[in-house]
Write a protein that binds this DNA or RNA. Sequence first.
DNA 1: TAACAAGACCCCGAG
DNA 2: GGTCTTGTTA
Length: 609
Amino acid sequence: MKIAYLLTHGYHPQDIIALTFTKKAATEMQQRIQQIVGPAPARRLWMGTFHSLFCRILRREASRLGFRSDFTIYDQSDSRSLIKTIIKEMELDDKIYKPNSVQAQISNAKNNLITPGMYSANKELLSYDIRSKRPKLHIIYQNYWNRCFQAGAMDFDDLLVYTNILFRDHPDVLEFYQQYFSYVLVDEYQDTNRAQHLIVEQLAAKHCHLCVVGDDAQSIYSFRGANIHNILDMQHKIPDTKLFKLEQNYRSTQNIVDAANSLIAKNKDQIHKTIFSEKDRGSKLILTGTYSDLEESYQVAGRVQTLHDDQGYRYRDIAILYRTNAQSRTLEEALRKRNILYRIYGGLSFYQRKEIKDIISYLRLITNPADEEAFKRVINYPARGIGQTTVNKVASIVATGKTFFEVCADPEAYQLDVNKGTSAKLRGFTALIQHFQELNAELNAYQLCERVITESGIKADLAQDITVEAISRRENVQELLSAIQTFTLGAVEEGREVKLVDFLADVSLSGDMEPEVHNADDDIKNSDYVSLMTIHSAKGLEFKNVFIVGIEENLLPSEMSLNEPGGLEEERRLLYVALTRAEENCYLSYAKSRFRNGKSEACKPSRFL
DNA sequence: TAACAAGACCCCGAG
DNA sequence: GGTCTTGTTA
């Protein structure tokens, strides 16, 4: 509404930057604005997630930071794999330096804008690492930082870190964007971390037109470094700040609001608010306990069907929310049995699948030959007789500042210790990529991708695979091709010039393309489906009917949260978020046994119930 | 070096 | 339940 208001009061769409956290919330908001002001102005708004919008800015300004504008974006698995490599190269024990926790610690540092240099100079951090028996962590961090730079790559956290560095070191750039965006809006401000907070503050410093919305009771991203004080201290830090308390809930019935209030009242750490609803009492919340997770899913699917068939709700008025992505499977199966259309958000995305990552890696390598992770992925896929031993030899030379690609293009020049045959294979591979690079200059993304699949041998490799899974892999490859096709055509329609690099950025930041609709017999049905997602990604959304499943000890609250300070309260807020997604009906359930890690485990109803 | 099998470890959440 | 690692063999 605020944006719509601004647009009718003299602001142009391109003057406004509106930031959200989840992709889901961004698309939702984009759609709402489109309905109010029409598609054309809505498209010109700077609206999206922190990561996607600042990625756009970083591409424009990349040269200021020593990056190319077509830098690669490393996803978690790329970044973890690089960290693993570094730990191995430093000959450290990966039982002590667990790649996952090293990655988490680096990410944490980045979210607080601590560069490797600052890390090494920080006595507190160093002594903490020594106490936890990981004294070399700061060196891993430094190496990781350098290697990403060398590879022309940024990880997700870097998108925020480098934006801050860009603004810090280039006042003229900062000034430009300060001038450019005359209004800054942020949704769910309670979930900003230090890096995001500083960006927002700097962008808004000139016009001082900053509007943020937030609710401390819905702060659920502390694992990502979210700092609640960003919103709490705003009044004191920025002069003339006006605070509006929104205590009326226009979404939910009184019963739902009451339930949510009574839950959140148990939290010690909160700002007191009196949330009320002027809607009807509504129906009571319904709690169901079942013997197993299978039975729970079966019940939910049954109720979904009743809501749709007997009570006249559309499927799109129904959401099923869970704590972990792993819970989606049994629900999917139950819905499928009843032929209920559903969409599943998040989880293992399409682009994480092996066959897709392989193809994407070729495309990444074509746009950025320095991309180390992409290189390692496809150097021997499809198998071309270049094994681990050879790659290790190349890696030892790469450590001196060359890229994998440079070394492989001319192994002799770098005195690589391999035989003639291997050397020829390496040169053959680089020649193949160079050939694709030439094609990239004349073909569009779709045509190029088709050539890559054929000429790399991926097509042949998949074709000769006769297992059942291979069928779905081939389908996935087709799906990827049509996604590129759609992307290319869509951009052409909007009159934008589209490059391969744009598609790749879209892939790594959107996480997933439009989730596929399951059970759809024809396209007409595609607009009506049940939504399945984690509570985290449901934030900011609303549904007439909400199912919250698996409300059990060790799941909600999650077992890991219990060891973290404030963890339990955050889990409680998480359930609060889930409850307040519901407008009319809210169904809660727990199971007494559940399949986890391949085993059936006994479960108790959550203390929150 | 490739292919396959057995064992280890794991996952809480998002961009 | 799945992926990733390690070991064995040709």
